[in-house]
Simulated assay, not measured.
Amino acid sequence: MFCSNNGIRRSPSSSANIIRLASLLLLAIMFLSGHVVFCDDTTPIPADAGGVNRWFSANVKPVADSKGCLDPALAVAEESPQVIKVRKDGSGDFSKICDAINSIPSENKKRVIIWIGAGEYVEKLKIEYAKPFITFYGSPDAMPTISYSGTAYEYGTVDSASLIVESDYFMAANIIIKNCAPRPDGKRKGAQAVALRISGTKAAFYNVRIIGFQDTLCDDKGVHFYKDCYIEGTVDFIFGRAKSLYLNTELHVLGDTGVTVITAQARDTPTEDCGYSFVHCRITGVGTGAYLGRAWMASPRVIFAYTNMGSVVNPAGWDNNLKPEREKSVYFAEYKCSGPGSNPSERVKYTKQLSEAEVRPFISLGYIQGTKWVLPPPAL
């Protein structure tokens, strides 16, 4: 026998029955009010590349199965998405992508899917901050291309992008984004040219090909997710101060002439919460001297996990950008990478080979708080 705080004496078996009844009642209430949604940001991406898509399906659910986890504004936006068709032959709602963007009202609160037909759209596009919840969708069998030839000389580096996204909750699937300006030769002033600048937060990219030379992708700010993408370039072709997770993405280096660098992550201080995490990616290309990253700013944070590195990778791996004092503040790290470019014995001394415990924060959706906003691509 025992005595509860209110002085009522009950037997242990009686108390256990009350607890069981209360649990059953709670489960009944949850069942009647709708299915139970579990939000798990912590499940790590598996070491086996063959398990990546299973992990994705288990952790990135459609809207109907994840409403209890999503940001409230996003859950509302996804309730009744609108589809706008863009077709070059005039059979859609618009023949130009810019006209479709202009048709969306500012402060839009609903998901708008701009379904882009096959072909090349030579347009310089900008989605301003006041237009959230926009998706660019192309057919995986006939991916459309957005291309332009803007350069830093004409527009400034970050505004040279063929596509600029400043709004939140952007998504793109099955799209080619390209800057077709000529490859910089070291002689022409301002020849660097961005294909995509993403400055809004909570953006996801699926099967997107981002093509350029120097400064291809300005992964500018916010949290972002890339899966099954292809990014091509020469120097600093992924740069900025976003906090991004790249999964099963190919990084293709166009080397042979001059210095080649994949990342120029722009974290200024060790306390700034940003950085790039590449998981189950592939580094391919031509040449043998590509650095995984350089210390463009004082405290860049870049991690490669389970990544296959071709011989295009420089054995040293990383570069201090001629600023040896930054070797103390960079966070350049690798975990269980493979391929001829992954040999840790030849790496610079200031890089880290992570332990299992150290890598865990960088190989789950928790790194970008993904259960609050990452959704699978639409199927049209």
Rank of each mutant, 00 (worst) to 15 (best):
A316I: 04
M297W: 13
D228N: 12
F237E: 00
T234L: 13
R241T: 09
Y246L: 08
D236G: 14
Y226P: 01
T307M: 10
L245K: 00
V235W: 15
G310A: 10
V302C: 15
A305T: 03
R241M: 10
R301M: 11
L251K: 01
A264R: 13
A316T: 07
R241N: 11
M309A: 10
I231W: 01
E325A: 15
V235N: 12
R241D: 14
C274Y: 08
K227Q: 15
M297Q: 12
P324S: 02
I303H: 05
S299Y: 13
I283S: 00
N248Y: 07
G287R: 01
R267S: 06
E325M: 07
Y230V: 09
N314T: 03
L247D: 00
N321V: 02
R301E: 07
R241C: 11
W296E: 12
R301Q: 14
N314R: 02
G289F: 06
V312L: 02
G287S: 02
N321I: 04
Q265E: 15
K227M: 14
Y276W: 09
N320K: 10
Y226I: 07
T288S: 15
H280I: 05
Q265V: 10
D319H: 15
G258D: 04
A295T: 09
T234D: 14
L245V: 09
D236V: 05
N308A: 11
G287W: 05
S277N: 03
T263H: 15
P315Q: 01
A305P: 04
I283Y: 00
G285H: 00
A316L: 11
P315Y: 08
E232I: 06
A316R: 05
Y306P: 03
T269M: 11
K323A: 12
A305Y: 05
N248D: 06
I303Y: 05
R267C: 11
R301I: 10
W296N: 11
K227E: 12
L245A: 00
